[in-house]
Amino acid sequence: MPPDVAAFTDTYLPTVNGATYTIRTWRERWLGRGGRMDVVYPGSSHDPDTGEHPVRSLPFPFYEGFRLGAPTVPDAVRDIDIVHAHSPFGVGLAGLRLARRTDRPLVASYHTPAAEYAGYLAEGWLMNGVARAGNAYERWFLDRADHVIAPSDTAKADLEARGVGPVSTVANGIDVDRFAPTDAAAFRARHDLPGRGERPLVGYTGRHGFEKQLSDLVRAIDGTDAVLLFGGDGPARKTLEEQVAGSDADVRFLGFLDREELPAFYSALDVFAFPSPVETQGLVALEAMACGTPVVGVEAGALVETIDEDATGYHYDPGDVAGFRAALDRALAERDRLAETCLSRRESMGVERAVDALAAVYDAVL
């Protein structure tokens, strides 16, 4: 039988992001294999299923939808075999406490660099100081884990260069049954978008953080006939809207999209654009590819390996807006060929392979 696992996370439903999606999907697959994977998370409007344990929480004042959870260990998870912390903060600290008190192994996932959160707490020169403090704290937490999981070889190498270990690569994986090409006509009509072939659609969805360099995407689109779609929200949105107001770019802000809408969103696009240099894997890029949409991304972070150059999309150098535009133009011109390659690799992106690798890590720490 698979071991009993308690996953501790500082972000969970109804908030939708890469970490939330991964935890939820891994849990479903783990239960399907006859195992137990309980989730401890900040209490929210999400109606918990059996095995989901909300703890007391407060709204996070700098980003709507996130909550700060108390470092509380529910009695229901004290008998598990493995503690899996998906974040190093409040609820993640509760996982560390449980592992220490019960002498259970602690596995820690590296979903998002702690330094990314600096943009929520400070601006200007203060942001660098907050980022350094975040990195130091993150290292302290990871050093207390028996095993660390990174979602890409790039993220694994980064952690090992910082002296963290042992580290294994376990890709997050995606649900290829959900993320598949779909008829996007209704989505286009609902959001008053041009039909296929009328004007190119380029899009991004995810957190609108300053560290994502989304302003480069607006500059790359400015002066072209493409329509740029932003799904999601975040602290950089107001700045982006001000930037758009001073440009000739045709940019539409769609806000948060329901998970059920995402396959249609990706399928509606001609190209998915990803300027973020700080990704540990870039799950949304894989989702787009699984829907047959090529990706243009910055040649930095995990996107170096997530995007297969001239096969599933193209890269450009960090900060090179002209290079970004040229890569977008090339991907648009070669969309059909790139889309075929994306679709041919769908199975390799699947979550079942990820859960196989996760099970191997659990076996190792036991």
Score class of each variant (00 low, 15 high):
Met1Pro: 09
Pro2Thr: 05
Asp4Glu: 12
Pro14His: 00
Asn17Arg: 03
Asn17Glu: 02
Gly18Val: 07
Thr22Gly: 04
Trp26Leu: 10
Arg27Phe: 08
Glu28Gln: 10
Arg29Lys: 04
Trp30Leu: 05
Gly32Arg: 02
Arg33Pro: 03
Gly34Ala: 02
Arg36Ala: 01
Met37Lys: 02
Asp38Arg: 02
Val39Tyr: 00
Val40Asp: 00
Pro42Asp: 00
Ser44Val: 06
Ser45Tyr: 01
Asp47Gln: 04
Asp49Pro: 01
Val55Gln: 05
Leu58Phe: 11
Leu58His: 03
Phe62Ala: 10
Gly69His: 06
Pro71Met: 07
Pro74Gly: 14
Arg78Ile: 14
Ile80Ala: 06
Asp81Cys: 10
Asp81Glu: 06
Val83Lys: 00
Pro88Arg: 00
Arg97His: 08
Ala99Gly: 08
Arg100Trp: 03
Leu106Ser: 02
Leu106Thr: 05
Ser109Val: 07
Ala114Thr: 05
Ala115Ile: 11
Glu116Ser: 06
Tyr117Cys: 08
Leu121Tyr: 09
Ala122Pro: 13
Leu126Phe: 11
Met127Cys: 14
Asn128Tyr: 09
Asn128Arg: 13
Val130Met: 03
Ala133Ser: 07
Gly134Tyr: 07
Gly134Asp: 00
Asn135Ala: 08
Asn135Met: 10
Arg139Glu: 12
Asp143Gly: 15
Asp143Gln: 15
Arg144Ala: 15
Asp146Glu: 13
Ile149Thr: 09
Ile149Cys: 06
Ser152Met: 13
Ala157Asn: 14
Asp158Gly: 11
Gly163Glu: 12
Gly165Leu: 07
Val167Gly: 14
Val167Asn: 10
Ser168Tyr: 08
Val176Ala: 10
Pro181Met: 06
Thr182Tyr: 02
Ala184Lys: 04
Ala184Asp: 13
Arg188His: 08
Arg188Phe: 08
Ala189Lys: 11
Arg190Cys: 08
Leu193Thr: 14
Gly197Tyr: 13
Glu198Asp: 15
Val202His: 08
Tyr204Met: 11
Tyr204Gly: 12
Thr205Gln: 08
Lys212Met: 07
Ser215Pro: 02
Ser215His: 04
Asp225Val: 11
Val227Lys: 00
Leu228Glu: 05
Leu229Pro: 04
Arg237Cys: 02
Thr239Cys: 00
Glu242Gly: 01
Ala245His: 03
Gly246Thr: 01
Ala249Val: 04
Asp258Thr: 13
Arg259Ala: 13
Glu261Ser: 10
Pro263Asn: 10
Pro263Glu: 09
Phe265Ile: 12
Tyr266Lys: 09
Ala268Lys: 09
Phe274Ala: 10
Val278Pro: 01
Glu279Arg: 05
Gln281Tyr: 03
Gly282Thr: 10
Val284Gln: 05
Glu287Pro: 14
Cys291Ile: 15
Val295Lys: 06
Val295Leu: 09
Ala300His: 01
Ala300Arg: 01
Ala300Ser: 12
Ile307Ala: 02
Asp310Glu: 15
Ala311Leu: 14
Ala311Glu: 15
Thr312Phe: 09
Gly313Ser: 04
Gly313Val: 06
His315Lys: 09
Tyr316Trp: 05
Pro318Asn: 03
Ala322Met: 02
Phe324Pro: 01
Arg325Asp: 04
Ala326Cys: 04
Leu328Asp: 03
Asp329His: 01
Ala331Asp: 03
Leu332Val: 11
Glu334His: 02
Ala339Ile: 02
Glu340Trp: 02
Arg346Ala: 08
Arg353Leu: 13
Ala354Leu: 09
Val355Glu: 10
Val355Met: 12
Asp356Ala: 08
Ala357Lys: 07
Ala359Met: 13
Ala364Ile: 12
Leu366Val: 15
